[in-house]
Protein backbone atom coordinates (compact mmCIF):
# COMPACT_ATOMS: atom_id res chain seq x y z
CA UNK A 1 0.00 0.00 0.00
CA UNK A 2 2.68 2.47 1.02
CA UNK A 3 4.83 1.35 -1.88
CA UNK A 4 1.98 1.93 -4.28
CA UNK A 5 1.54 5.38 -2.88
CA UNK A 6 5.24 6.11 -3.21
CA UNK A 7 5.32 4.94 -6.80
CA UNK A 8 2.32 7.00 -7.72
CA UNK A 9 3.79 10.08 -6.08
CA UNK A 10 7.06 9.66 -7.93
CA UNK A 11 5.23 9.11 -11.17
CA UNK A 12 3.22 12.28 -10.77
CA UNK A 13 6.30 14.27 -9.88
CA UNK A 14 7.99 12.98 -12.98
CA UNK A 15 5.04 14.00 -15.06
CA UNK A 16 5.21 17.49 -13.60
CA UNK A 17 8.90 17.75 -14.26
CA UNK A 18 8.52 16.56 -17.79
CA UNK A 19 7.05 19.70 -19.28
CA UNK A 20 9.65 21.81 -17.51
CA UNK A 21 12.44 19.86 -19.16
CA UNK A 22 10.78 19.77 -22.53
CA UNK A 23 9.94 23.46 -22.54
CA UNK A 24 13.18 24.10 -24.30
CA UNK A 25 12.04 23.18 -27.80
CA UNK A 26 8.80 24.64 -29.19
CA UNK A 27 6.36 23.02 -29.86
CA UNK A 28 6.06 20.33 -27.23
CA UNK A 29 2.32 19.84 -27.36
CA UNK A 30 -0.51 20.17 -29.87
CA UNK A 31 -1.13 23.50 -31.54
CA UNK A 32 -4.62 24.86 -31.96
CA UNK A 33 -5.94 26.86 -34.89
CA UNK A 34 -9.18 28.73 -34.31
CA UNK A 35 -11.40 28.73 -37.39
CA UNK A 36 -13.85 31.61 -37.22
CA UNK A 37 -16.86 30.02 -38.88
CA UNK A 38 -18.96 26.88 -38.63
CA UNK A 39 -18.17 23.57 -40.35
CA UNK A 40 -18.09 23.94 -44.13
CA UNK A 41 -15.95 23.32 -47.18
CA UNK A 42 -13.85 26.33 -46.21
CA UNK A 43 -13.17 24.56 -42.92
CA UNK A 44 -11.74 21.61 -44.84
CA UNK A 45 -9.30 23.90 -46.61
CA UNK A 46 -8.03 25.04 -43.23
CA UNK A 47 -7.79 21.44 -42.14
CA UNK A 48 -5.58 20.72 -45.14
CA UNK A 49 -3.31 23.58 -44.13
CA UNK A 50 -3.38 22.36 -40.54
CA UNK A 51 -2.34 18.90 -41.61
CA UNK A 52 0.52 20.33 -43.66
CA UNK A 53 1.71 22.43 -40.73
CA UNK A 54 1.44 19.44 -38.44
CA UNK A 55 3.74 17.41 -40.67
CA UNK A 56 6.40 20.08 -40.53
CA UNK A 57 6.08 20.88 -36.83
CA UNK A 58 5.96 17.31 -35.65
CA UNK A 59 3.01 18.02 -33.39
CA UNK A 60 -0.71 17.62 -34.02
CA UNK A 61 -2.45 20.74 -35.23
CA UNK A 62 -6.16 20.80 -34.51
CA UNK A 63 -8.46 23.23 -36.29
CA UNK A 64 -11.30 24.16 -33.95
CA UNK A 65 -14.47 25.69 -35.30
CA UNK A 66 -15.28 28.73 -33.13
CA UNK A 67 -18.11 30.51 -34.91
CA UNK A 68 -19.67 33.72 -33.74
CA UNK A 69 -20.09 37.37 -34.57
CA UNK A 70 -18.83 36.93 -38.12
CA UNK A 71 -15.53 35.56 -36.90
CA UNK A 72 -14.86 38.20 -34.26
CA UNK A 73 -15.45 35.74 -31.46
CA UNK A 74 -12.59 33.53 -32.65
CA UNK A 75 -10.26 36.51 -32.96
CA UNK A 76 -11.04 37.72 -29.45
CA UNK A 77 -10.65 34.19 -28.08
CA UNK A 78 -7.17 34.01 -29.58
CA UNK A 79 -6.29 37.36 -28.05
CA UNK A 80 -7.36 36.06 -24.67
CA UNK A 81 -5.15 33.02 -24.83
CA UNK A 82 -1.47 32.98 -23.94
CA UNK A 83 0.95 34.49 -26.44
CA UNK A 84 3.00 31.33 -26.56
CA UNK A 85 2.45 30.31 -30.16
CA UNK A 86 0.15 27.42 -29.36
CA UNK A 87 -2.94 29.25 -30.54
CA UNK A 88 -3.16 30.44 -34.12
CA UNK A 89 -5.95 32.53 -35.54
CA UNK A 90 -7.20 31.48 -38.97
CA UNK A 91 -7.62 35.07 -40.09
CA UNK A 92 -10.24 35.33 -42.76
CA UNK A 93 -10.77 38.73 -44.26
CA UNK A 94 -14.14 39.16 -42.52
CA UNK A 95 -12.88 39.16 -38.93
CA UNK A 96 -9.38 40.39 -39.77
CA UNK A 97 -10.12 43.41 -41.93
CA UNK A 98 -13.85 43.85 -42.38
CA UNK A 99 -14.92 43.72 -38.75
CA UNK A 100 -12.50 46.41 -37.56
CA UNK A 101 -13.56 48.50 -40.54
CA UNK A 102 -17.24 48.33 -39.76
CA UNK A 103 -16.65 49.03 -36.09
CA UNK A 104 -17.68 45.57 -35.00
CA UNK A 105 -14.26 44.84 -33.53
CA UNK A 106 -11.95 46.80 -31.30
CA UNK A 107 -8.77 45.27 -32.71
CA UNK A 108 -7.16 45.56 -36.11
CA UNK A 109 -4.95 43.41 -38.28
CA UNK A 110 -1.97 45.17 -36.72
CA UNK A 111 -2.65 43.45 -33.41
CA UNK A 112 -1.47 40.17 -34.89
CA UNK A 113 1.86 38.85 -36.07
CA UNK A 114 1.50 37.13 -39.43
CA UNK A 115 2.58 33.68 -40.47
CA UNK A 116 1.67 32.88 -44.07
CA UNK A 117 -1.51 33.18 -46.09
CA UNK A 118 -3.32 29.99 -47.01
CA UNK A 119 -5.76 30.38 -49.87
CA UNK A 120 -8.12 32.69 -51.64
CA UNK A 121 -11.42 32.01 -53.33
CA UNK A 122 -13.33 34.22 -55.64
CA UNK A 123 -17.08 34.56 -55.57
CA UNK A 124 -19.34 34.39 -58.57
CA UNK A 125 -22.72 35.86 -59.33
CA UNK A 126 -24.89 33.05 -60.63
CA UNK A 127 -28.45 32.75 -61.89
CA UNK A 128 -30.57 29.75 -62.83
CA UNK A 129 -29.47 27.79 -65.84
CA UNK A 130 -32.75 28.26 -67.66
CA UNK A 131 -33.20 31.93 -66.78
CA UNK A 132 -35.01 33.71 -69.59
CA UNK A 133 -35.15 37.27 -68.41
CA UNK A 134 -31.53 38.02 -69.28
CA UNK A 135 -28.56 36.41 -71.00
CA UNK A 136 -25.56 37.96 -69.34
CA UNK A 137 -24.38 40.43 -66.76
CA UNK A 138 -25.23 43.61 -68.70
CA UNK A 139 -28.67 42.16 -69.43
CA UNK A 140 -29.16 41.37 -65.76
CA UNK A 141 -28.17 44.85 -64.68
CA UNK A 142 -30.49 46.35 -67.28
CA UNK A 143 -33.37 44.27 -65.92
CA UNK A 144 -32.57 45.46 -62.42
CA UNK A 145 -32.52 49.07 -63.58
CA UNK A 146 -35.92 48.72 -65.19
CA UNK A 147 -37.41 46.85 -62.22
CA UNK A 148 -36.01 48.40 -59.06
CA UNK A 149 -36.41 46.21 -55.98
CA UNK A 150 -37.85 43.27 -57.88
CA UNK A 151 -34.76 41.10 -57.94
CA UNK A 152 -34.09 39.04 -54.82
CA UNK A 153 -30.51 37.96 -54.27
CA UNK A 154 -28.67 36.05 -51.59
CA UNK A 155 -25.19 36.96 -50.44
CA UNK A 156 -25.04 36.11 -46.76
CA UNK A 157 -25.07 38.59 -43.92
CA UNK A 158 -24.41 42.30 -44.35
CA UNK A 159 -20.78 42.58 -43.26
CA UNK A 160 -19.35 39.66 -45.15
CA UNK A 161 -17.12 39.93 -48.16
CA UNK A 162 -19.62 38.01 -50.22
CA UNK A 163 -22.18 40.72 -49.71
CA UNK A 164 -19.75 43.59 -49.87
CA UNK A 165 -18.50 42.65 -53.28
CA UNK A 166 -21.93 42.43 -54.91
CA UNK A 167 -23.36 45.47 -53.20
CA UNK A 168 -20.36 47.56 -54.22
CA UNK A 169 -20.89 46.64 -57.84
CA UNK A 170 -24.65 47.20 -57.70
CA UNK A 171 -24.19 50.63 -56.16
CA UNK A 172 -21.70 51.54 -58.85
CA UNK A 173 -24.31 50.67 -61.42
CA UNK A 174 -27.05 52.40 -59.47
CA UNK A 175 -29.39 49.42 -59.26
CA UNK A 176 -31.43 48.22 -56.31
CA UNK A 177 -32.40 44.71 -55.26
CA UNK A 178 -33.62 42.89 -52.10
CA UNK A 179 -31.30 40.68 -50.17
CA UNK A 180 -32.54 37.55 -48.46
CA UNK A 181 -30.29 36.40 -45.64
CA UNK A 182 -29.36 32.78 -45.08
CA UNK A 183 -26.84 31.17 -42.81
CA UNK A 184 -26.71 27.55 -43.88
CA UNK A 185 -27.37 24.97 -46.55
CA UNK A 186 -30.99 26.00 -46.93
CA UNK A 187 -29.66 28.86 -49.08
CA UNK A 188 -28.59 26.59 -51.90
CA UNK A 189 -31.72 24.51 -51.54
CA UNK A 190 -33.95 27.52 -51.97
CA UNK A 191 -31.86 28.76 -54.90
CA UNK A 192 -32.27 25.42 -56.65
CA UNK A 193 -35.98 25.55 -55.89
CA UNK A 194 -36.06 28.95 -57.56
CA UNK A 195 -37.30 30.77 -54.49
CA UNK A 196 -35.07 33.71 -55.41
CA UNK A 197 -33.32 35.02 -58.49
CA UNK A 198 -29.55 35.19 -58.15
CA UNK A 199 -26.90 34.18 -55.70
CA UNK A 200 -23.32 35.03 -54.85
CA UNK A 201 -21.65 31.68 -54.38
CA UNK A 202 -18.19 30.36 -53.59
CA UNK A 203 -16.30 27.71 -55.49
CA UNK A 204 -17.38 24.85 -53.25
CA UNK A 205 -21.02 25.67 -53.87
CA UNK A 206 -20.39 26.11 -57.59
CA UNK A 207 -18.64 22.81 -58.00
CA UNK A 208 -21.43 20.80 -56.49
CA UNK A 209 -24.27 22.52 -58.29
CA UNK A 210 -22.84 23.78 -61.55
CA UNK A 211 -25.37 21.96 -63.68
CA UNK A 212 -28.16 24.13 -62.30
CA UNK A 213 -26.32 27.41 -62.53
CA UNK A 214 -25.23 29.91 -65.08
CA UNK A 215 -22.34 32.18 -64.14
CA UNK A 216 -23.11 35.82 -64.84
CA UNK A 217 -19.70 36.96 -63.67
CA UNK A 218 -16.79 35.98 -61.48
CA UNK A 219 -16.57 38.82 -58.99
CA UNK A 220 -12.88 39.55 -59.27
CA UNK A 221 -10.49 41.40 -61.53
CA UNK A 222 -8.20 38.40 -61.90
CA UNK A 223 -9.06 35.45 -64.10
CA UNK A 224 -9.97 32.30 -62.23
CA UNK A 225 -7.43 29.52 -61.68
CA UNK A 226 -7.90 26.18 -63.37
CA UNK A 227 -10.08 24.60 -60.74
CA UNK A 228 -11.92 27.77 -59.87
CA UNK A 229 -15.21 29.09 -61.15
CA UNK A 230 -15.15 29.67 -64.91
CA UNK A 231 -16.80 32.79 -66.22
CA UNK A 232 -16.45 36.34 -67.49
CA UNK A 233 -15.17 39.13 -65.31
CA UNK A 234 -17.15 42.33 -64.88
CA UNK A 235 -14.36 44.28 -66.55
CA UNK A 236 -14.91 42.17 -69.68
CA UNK A 237 -18.16 44.06 -70.04
CA UNK A 238 -16.66 47.34 -69.03
CA UNK A 239 -18.36 47.13 -65.66
CA UNK A 240 -16.35 48.22 -62.67
CA UNK A 241 -16.17 45.98 -59.64
CA UNK A 242 -14.79 48.75 -57.50
CA UNK A 243 -12.31 46.36 -55.89
CA UNK A 244 -9.05 44.94 -57.15
CA UNK A 245 -6.69 42.11 -56.34
CA UNK A 246 -7.30 40.38 -53.04
CA UNK A 247 -9.86 42.94 -51.96
CA UNK A 248 -12.62 41.31 -53.98
CA UNK A 249 -12.06 37.75 -52.90
CA UNK A 250 -12.19 35.77 -49.72
CA UNK A 251 -8.80 34.84 -48.30
CA UNK A 252 -7.24 33.78 -45.03
CA UNK A 253 -3.96 34.49 -43.30
CA UNK A 254 -2.77 32.53 -40.29
CA UNK A 255 -1.68 34.87 -37.52
CA UNK A 256 -0.67 34.78 -33.87
CA UNK A 257 -0.81 37.35 -31.10
CA UNK A 258 1.52 40.26 -31.74
CA UNK A 259 3.36 39.77 -28.44
CA UNK A 260 4.35 36.20 -29.26
CA UNK A 261 8.12 35.73 -28.83
CA UNK A 262 10.04 36.01 -32.08
CA UNK A 263 11.82 32.68 -31.82
CA UNK A 264 8.50 30.87 -31.49
CA UNK A 265 7.07 32.78 -34.44
CA UNK A 266 10.18 31.88 -36.45
CA UNK A 267 9.59 28.17 -35.89
CA UNK A 268 5.95 28.48 -36.91
CA UNK A 269 6.80 30.52 -40.00
CA UNK A 270 9.45 28.14 -41.24
CA UNK A 271 7.18 25.16 -40.76
CA UNK A 272 4.27 26.86 -42.45
CA UNK A 273 6.42 27.99 -45.37
CA UNK A 274 7.44 24.41 -46.01
CA UNK A 275 3.92 23.15 -45.54
CA UNK A 276 2.33 25.63 -47.91
CA UNK A 277 5.03 25.20 -50.54
CA UNK A 278 4.37 21.49 -50.65
CA UNK A 279 2.76 20.66 -54.02
CA UNK A 280 0.56 18.00 -52.38
CA UNK A 281 -0.99 20.59 -50.10
CA UNK A 282 -1.53 22.98 -52.95
CA UNK A 283 -3.17 20.31 -55.05
CA UNK A 284 -5.62 19.40 -52.31
CA UNK A 285 -6.61 23.02 -51.84
CA UNK A 286 -7.04 23.49 -55.56
CA UNK A 287 -9.37 20.55 -55.81
CA UNK A 288 -11.75 22.29 -53.43
CA UNK A 289 -11.81 25.18 -55.89
CA UNK A 290 -9.67 27.48 -53.77
CA UNK A 291 -6.44 29.15 -54.91
CA UNK A 292 -3.52 28.42 -52.62
CA UNK A 293 -1.60 31.65 -52.05
CA UNK A 294 2.10 31.47 -52.77
CA UNK A 295 4.12 31.78 -49.55
CA UNK A 296 6.76 33.67 -51.52
CA UNK A 297 4.38 36.43 -52.53
CA UNK A 298 2.16 36.44 -49.46
CA UNK A 299 4.95 36.43 -46.93
CA UNK A 300 4.95 37.87 -43.40
CA UNK A 301 6.71 40.94 -44.76
CA UNK A 302 3.89 41.75 -47.16
CA UNK A 303 1.11 41.26 -44.60
CA UNK A 304 0.88 44.83 -43.39
CA UNK A 305 0.98 46.37 -46.84
CA UNK A 306 -1.64 44.00 -48.25
CA UNK A 307 -4.01 44.36 -45.30
CA UNK A 308 -3.76 48.15 -45.33
CA UNK A 309 -4.41 48.26 -49.05
CA UNK A 310 -7.44 46.03 -48.71
CA UNK A 311 -8.70 48.10 -45.79
CA UNK A 312 -8.57 51.22 -47.93
CA UNK A 313 -10.40 49.57 -50.80
CA UNK A 314 -13.08 48.11 -48.62
CA UNK A 315 -13.69 51.37 -46.78
CA UNK A 316 -15.48 52.78 -49.78
CA UNK A 317 -17.34 49.56 -50.39
CA UNK A 318 -18.73 49.45 -46.87
CA UNK A 319 -20.71 52.59 -47.56
CA UNK A 320 -22.53 50.70 -50.28
CA UNK A 321 -24.20 48.41 -47.73
CA UNK A 322 -25.84 51.34 -46.01
CA UNK A 323 -26.80 52.82 -49.37
CA UNK A 324 -28.47 49.64 -50.58
CA UNK A 325 -30.41 49.15 -47.35
CA UNK A 326 -31.68 52.72 -47.52
CA UNK A 327 -32.70 52.38 -51.13
CA UNK A 328 -34.61 49.20 -50.49
CA UNK A 329 -36.29 50.67 -47.43
CA UNK A 330 -37.36 53.68 -49.45
CA UNK A 331 -38.92 51.44 -52.05
CA UNK A 332 -40.75 49.31 -49.52
CA UNK A 333 -42.34 52.16 -47.65
Amino acid sequence: MKRLLAILTLASLALCAGPALAAQKFPTRPVQVLFPFGPSVTYSVSQVAGEALSQELGQPVSVTSTPGAGGVKAALTVMNKAADGYTIFDGYVAPLVLAPLSGNAKYSHKDFKPLYAVASNAFALVCHKDETRWDDLPGFLKYMKENPGKIVYSSGQDFTLRNLVIVAMLKNEGVVGRKVTYQDATEMKDFLAKEFDVMVCNSGQYKTNKDSMRVLAVLSDQPSPEDGIPGPLPKDYGISLGLSGLAAVGWNWWVVRSDTPDDVVQVLREAMYRGMSNPETRKKIEFMGFSPLSPDTYSPESYDRICSDITDQLTDAVGAIEWMNEQVARLGM
Binding site: G149, K179, T181, N325, E326, A329, G332
Partner: peptide, 16 residues
Protein backbone atom coordinates in the same frame (compact mmCIF):
# COMPACT_ATOMS: atom_id res chain seq x y z
CA UNK B 1 -36.71 45.08 -26.88
CA UNK B 2 -38.25 48.49 -27.18
CA UNK B 3 -35.41 50.47 -25.66
CA UNK B 4 -32.28 48.70 -26.83
CA UNK B 5 -33.07 46.76 -29.92
CA UNK B 6 -35.80 48.62 -31.74
CA UNK B 7 -33.97 51.95 -32.08
CA UNK B 8 -31.00 50.23 -33.70
CA UNK B 9 -33.16 49.38 -36.65
CA UNK B 10 -32.62 52.60 -38.52
CA UNK B 11 -34.61 51.27 -41.41
CA UNK B 12 -36.86 48.34 -42.02
CA UNK B 13 -35.52 46.48 -44.99
CA UNK B 14 -38.19 45.69 -47.48
CA UNK B 15 -39.97 42.57 -46.30
CA UNK B 16 -37.79 41.82 -43.33
Amino acid sequence: SRVSIAPKTAYTVYGE
